[in-house]
């Protein structure tokens, strides 16, 4: 059980490292948001599964709190990143490498 737990923990830490590297290397804001959100969501998922396997022998009462944390992260992380993307678009900070832009023709009605 300890071995399984450490496998999940190392996979999760690798995805966190990948998220940081994606935020560092990507060229514009929208791609940074994409890399950061996906990698950190799976990283948190994997680390929490690892902690669950590691603590299930001694502490059965940890399981509900871990479930609460993972449900909250999976709901709130995409909502937060979508809000940042919308604010970035509205603040006229649009990268110039977009091939097609359907939001432009919507106009500024707000």
């Amino acid at each position: 059980m300890t071995i399984l737990s450490y496998i999940f923990l190392i996979i999760g830490a690798l995805f966190f490292l990948l998220g940081g590297l994606g935020v560092f290397r990507m060229p514009d804001t929208f791609n940074r948001i994409q890399a950061g959100t996906k990698a950190t969501t799976l990283g948190a998922f994997s680390i929490i599964v690892g902690v669950l396997f590691g603590s299930v022998e001694n502490h059965l009462d940890w399981i509900p709190k871990l479930i609460i944390i993972i449900v909250f992260i999976v709901i709130s992380n995409p909502v937060g990143s979508s809000t940042i993307a919308k604010a970035t678009y509205r603040s006229k900070n649009i990268p110039d490498n977009l091939i097609q832009d359907d939001l432009k023709e919507r106009g500024e009605k707000q």
Binding site: G22, A35, I99, Q100, D101, D102
Partner: peptide, 16 residues
């Protein structure tokens, strides 16, 4: 994401 981040020149083709 891992394939894109770890490749030497990042393949991008973005649009909305």
């Amino acid at each position: 994401v891992a394939r894109r981040v770890l490749s030497f020149k990042i393949p991008l083709n973005p649009g909305i």
